[in-house]
Simulated scan of single mutants.
Amino acid sequence: MSDTGDTITITGNVATAPELKRTTGGVSITTFRVASGQRKYDRGSGEWSDAGTNWYTVSVFRRLADHAFQSLHRGDRVILTGKLRLREWDNGTKRGTAIEIEADAIGHDLLWGTTTFVKDGQPAGATPTEGSAHTADSWALPGQR
């Protein structure tokens, strides 16, 4: 596998159901594929047209892997950033290049819908209590209100 050393940010659709696995050491790894459609504007016709789709295999580790597995579903529109990796492959009859991203951050793309954020330690489905709504103070470091 070659490391391009590049950080990439993409938007796209989760194309496969996320799969969660654990190493023998207990490290969580979630993998899934993302389809990122490209569009281009034709000034002559004044219209947008499809310009192909890039496919990425995305891997996430540890807590982010657990959260991604619980939060993402096939078809969800996401934005993610991470390290780009290119891997040459050869199965004996075909050769190619796999494009992989080791994601550092993932979220739903809010251009296409809404989502609900639940912090670690907060019960799922819990509603914010009085004074815990997202205000400047609610994002302060612990012990600093």
Rank of each mutant, 00 (worst) to 15 (best):
G5H: 13
T53C: 05
T127V: 06
F117H: 12
Q70Y: 10
V58N: 05
K119I: 01
T4P: 01
D6I: 06
W55D: 01
T53H: 13
V78Y: 07
T116I: 14
V60E: 03
K94A: 05
I99V: 15
N13V: 03
T7I: 12
T11F: 09
Q144S: 04
T23L: 02
R33N: 10
R87P: 00
D3A: 06
K94R: 15
A68H: 11
F69P: 00
L20Y: 12
D90G: 02
G44V: 05
T97Q: 11
S45R: 11
G5A: 06
I101L: 05
T31Y: 10
T16H: 10
L111Y: 15
T53G: 05
A51E: 10
S36M: 05
L86S: 06
G131P: 06
T57E: 12
W139S: 01
N91E: 05
R62A: 10
D109R: 07
W48G: 00
N54M: 12
R39M: 03
A103W: 13
T30E: 06
I101M: 06
T81L: 01
Q38C: 00
Q122A: 08
N13H: 14
D50E: 15
G12N: 08
Q38G: 00
V58I: 14
R85E: 04
T7V: 10
G131W: 15
L110I: 09
I8G: 02
